[in-house]
């Protein structure tokens, strides 16, 4: 057993649940632009990860795992994943987390995911492998392709992102009624 991996998973799983991403109501609400809680969580998650990764990188402490920019394959795959996420309110990580939280439909989704992975194994040699070669830019990062340093990219995304989150922040919890309104 890999204790480091297990520990990171423990933190990640608890965070997904506590933040409300492992909740199909919150995910569907955000995809319908009716409940922006999950969207705000996702933006903070990404920006904090970006700033943290850039700081770790500056000290030579970052462990990278950059994926290939196989654009054709990513557009097809991202589209299929999006359809599944729009149907269920789950993604692979939150599906596992929701199943662990007692949602039987999420457990069924996880079985569907195992079947989807099996279908991928079957068609990978004939279909997915060749598609990967179409419009493939390789394992590249924006600082490399643009010549603009990582720190500049990070500030350029994180600063406007933080300002946008602050300006559009929802009202303080104190302004909301704490008791349900009495029946009229």
């Amino acid at each position: 057993m890999d204790i480091t991996g297990f520990g990171i998973g423990l933190l990640f799983g608890a965070a997904l649940f506590l933040a409300g991403l492992a909740d199909p109501d919150k995910m569907v609400g955000t995809l319908r632009l009716r409940d922006l809680h999950a969207l705000r969580v996702i933006v903070v998650f990404v920006l904090v990860g970006l700033v943290g990764a850039t700081v770790l990188d500056a000290f030579g402490l970052a462990h990278w795992s950059v994926k290939p920019a196989a654009v054709a394959s990513i557009l097809v795959g991202g589209g299929l994943l999006g359809v599944g996420m729009g149907m269920t309110g789950y993604c692979p990580g939150t599906g596992v987390a929701c199943a662990a939280g007692g949602r039987a439909d999420a457990a069924v989704s996880v079985l569907g995911m195992l079947a989807g992975a099996f279908a991928y194994i079957l068609i990978q040699p004939a279909v997915a492998g060749p598609l990967d070669q179409v419009w493939n830019l390789g394992k590249t990062v924006l600082p490399e392709t643009t010549g603009i340093p990582r720190a500049v990219w990070t500030l350029g995304l994180a600063l406007p992102g933080a300002i946008a989150l602050w300006v559009t922040r929802p009202g303080r919890p104190a302004q909301r009624p704490t008791q349900p309104a009495p029946a009229a």
Binding site: V76, G84, M87, G93, T94, S109, Y120
Partner: peptide, 24 residues
Amino acid sequence: AFAGGFLILLGARFAHGCTSGQFA
């Protein structure tokens, strides 16, 4: 839920990652 899960993982592998790996 089952059909959606099927599309989620089939798509994630085509895309080389899901909302964790290929997005965040």
